[in-house]
Design a binder for these strands. Structure first.
Lengths: 223, 223
DNA sequence: GATTTGGTTGGGCGGCCGGCCAACCGACGC
DNA sequence: GCGTCGGTTGGCCGGCCGCCCAACCAAATC
């Protein structure tokens, strides 16, 4: 052991610099396609210096992802603090999430380089992800409890639907596009909240249709 | 040039075997983290044989993705052939897409290894993707034209919303889960079609809320 | 101004990578 | 039987990879 195994100090601006450089490259080319030499060059430093703070490339990835999830949660909490109405909290959180996702590299690395996490690092990130998910589960649970949502909605699927849509935006959003992240978030929420079928031409008994869908909860196969 | 640049013959069962083996590994570990030796071993052959049919690893990736998109489109067309009602065609196509996505390796590679495509291969896949997107745009256009959808819906965002949700399923679906792919597709479509807000407690004038959302089309900033 | 401390330098090491190819094999036509 | 030829073999090559580390440096401490 030539150096302390678990250094007591907690991240500084220099670490941020390294992590930011790595995050940009990981997002652009992926973890596996990025070399430590690439990262060092992008950070304006020689490979050895990188190694001093992050002994392995995987350590760098883990640190970067952890910081990403923490910052994400921070943004979310800040965005909804002081707002009580559950559906509005949901809308504001979605805005914050999309804004964060599209303005930083780290959250996209978290999404798309998950495969590169192995062993201990993977387990550690799973804990972080669970914590992050719990936040959203709570938000949806509040909204459902408030009575604003249809009572027969599967909250898990709703969460996965919304998150898939939001996360997918990282793949197609471009800064020059016709809409801002906030507008996209609101538009998505508008579609999901009110539905896309024209009310005037919905099936005569919507309730029947919905009940048919929710009946699948007990697992009717598709033949 | 020791061998023909563009071999005239078109894929056989042997190619399928190679491509399938590669697809499984690419999906599990990613293109960059998979070695040609891995693929050869998985296909029960020596590296040289692989090289004989696919001179470079990138050629393998491209061939695999092309085949994936073609098969996908084939499934989609088959699923909706003979059905005229636009909204029903949409629902059936979503089912088919999700079933295909979750039962094969190739479509997931198409989704998550896009970054590894470079130069000519990338451009070629972009053409395939555009063709694939055109299919869905057509489906949505039909549905909107039929009058079943709210007239003020942004079809592009609706497509991105639905596709993000469907594609995201590749990340969380597990065969042992509580729902089949068809059930998931129907549930997603149900949520999007009818919305999640309880009708009894929607804002008094939904139209106003919707108009506010669609007004963003002209690009009102978020201040 | 000597010593300690925290961090950087720049090159080097072993190993594995993608790609290559001469020799080889076996099915088939003649 | 014999030549042809599509396809496979198994090992080789140059290069780059992640990781390591002895020397070095500058700011802080005494």
């Amino acid at each position: 052991m030539t150096k302390a195994k678990a250094s007591p100090k907690k991240a500084g601006p220099v670490d941020d610099h390294f992590l930011d450089a790595a995050a940009r490259l990981f997002r652009q080319k992926g973890f596996e396609a990025t070399t430590v030499r690439d990262i060092a060059r992008a950070a304006g430093v020689l490979p050895g210096s990188l190694h001093y703070r992050y002994p392995t490339k995987a350590d760098l990835l883990l640190a970067l992802m952890k910081r990403g999830v923490e910052a994400d949660l921070g943004c979310l909490r800040a965005a909804i603090s002081g707002v009580r109405e559950p559906v509005e909290r949901l809308r504001l959180a979605l805005r914050a999430r999309l804004r964060f996702l599209l303005s930083r590299d780290a959250p996209q690395v978290v999404l798309y380089d998950w495969r590169s996490l192995k062993g201990r690092a993977r387990e550690e990130m799973i804990r972080y992800r669970d914590q992050y998910e719990a936040f959203w589960k709570g938000l949806l649970y509040e909204a459902a409890g408030s009575g604003w949502l249809r009572p027969d909605i599967d909250l898990r699927l709703l969460r996965l639907l919304v998150f898939g849509a939001i996360n997918g935006a990282a793949l197609w959003y471009s800064r020059g596009g016709p809409r801002t992240p906030d507008e996209i978030a609101d538009a998505f929420w508008g579609l999901i909240a009110y539905g896309v079928l024209d009310e005037a031409r919905r099936p005569h008994d919507v309730d029947t249709a919905l009940r048919a869908l929710s009946a699948m909860e007990v697992g009717v196969g598709d033949g």
